[in-house]
Design a protein around this nucleic acid. Structure first.
Lengths: 122, 122
DNA sequence: GGTGAATATGTGGATATCCACATATGTTAA
DNA sequence: TTAACATATGTGGATATCCACATATTCACC
C-alpha cells in the first residue's frame, strides 16, 4: 500500500502562492496594489500598457485566491490588496517590491500621467 | 511603434525563481538541502519517497538555475545548496522553511531512518 | 570484461497555462 | 431606448509543465 509522505496543507499553500507570482502581469498588479489604496481595471491597464481582457483575467485569478478584493463603484471596479494576507505572504510581497522596485516605479510613473483617472477611495 | 513598459531584468529574476518553487518536489528538495550540508539523489529519493528519475530531473532543473551545485563522488552525486543565493532568494527560502516546517520535519525523520546512507561531506 | 548500484536522460501523453480576439454584461447619460 | 464606456468571460490555439516508463551512462568491484 502506497502512502505518500507529502502532506499537502502547508506545502500547497506555498506552491499555490508561488504559482500566482510566476506571471509578471499578476506580480506587477500586486505590486501596484500594494502601493496604492485601490486601483480600477483601467488604471492598471494604463499603468501596465496591457489589454483590458488580460488585466481583468489576471485580477480574477488574484481574487479567486483571495489576494485582492473587489468593489464596484459606478462603472468602475476597484481592486484592493487583501489586508489579511498571512505574514509570510506579506513578507514575500515586500521582498518583491524591493527587488523589482525599478519596475514598480516605471509603472507608477506611467499611472500618474493617466488622463481622466477615476476618483479613488470613495 | 509598440514599446513594452515591462523591463525584464528584475521582474524575470523574481518570476523565474517563483516558477522553480511552484513544484512541491523541488521545494521539498530545496528545503532539505537548506538543512543539510549536502545530500545525494538516493537520500532525497528515500526522504521524499519518490522515484529516482523524478528526483534527478528536478535536481537538474535546480542546477540549471544555479540554486544547487553538484559533486560526483564514486557512484553518488551529492547536491548542495548554492551558498551564493541572493538575499531575497535566501529570505524567501527561509520563509518556506518556517511555513512548511512540518513537511521538512517529516522528510528529515524519514531520511534519518534510511539504512546504508552514503557518507556525507567527504 | 561483466555485474550491479547510482544517476541521468529520451520519449510520448496528459494536463495546465497563457494569449488574442470576440462577445457578453452592467452602468451612465442622453 | 440607444450609445458609450468599463469590465468580465467564452473560445480555440500555442506553448509549457509534469509524469511514468524505458533506457543510457558512470563507477566500483570482482
Amino acid at each position: 500500500m502506497w502512502i505518500s509522505t507529502y502532506s499537502p496543507t502547508h506545502m500547497t499553500a506555498l506552491t499555490e502562492f508561488f504559482k500566482i507570482l510566476t506571471d509578471p502581469t499578476r506580480l506587477r498588479c500586486l505590486m501596484l496594489l500594494a502601493s496604492h489604496p485601490e486601483l480600477c481595471v483601467c488604471e492598471l491597464c494604463y499603468a501596465l500598457q496591457l489589454p483590458q481582457s488580460k488585466i481583468s483575467r489576471h485580477l480574477a485569478i488574484l481574487k479567486l485566491h483571495k489576494l485582492v478584493s473587489q468593489k464596484r463603484i459606478d462603472q468602475w471596479t476597484f481592486y484592493r490588496l487583501n489586508p489579511h494576507l498571512t505574514h509570510w505572504q506579506h513578507n514575500i510581497l515586500q521582498l518583491c517590491l524591493s527587488q523589482a522596485n525599478s519596475q514598480l516605479q516605471r509603472d507608477q510613473q506611467r499611472l500618474h500621467t493617466m488622463p481622466h483617472r477615476p476618483l479613488c477611495q470613495l
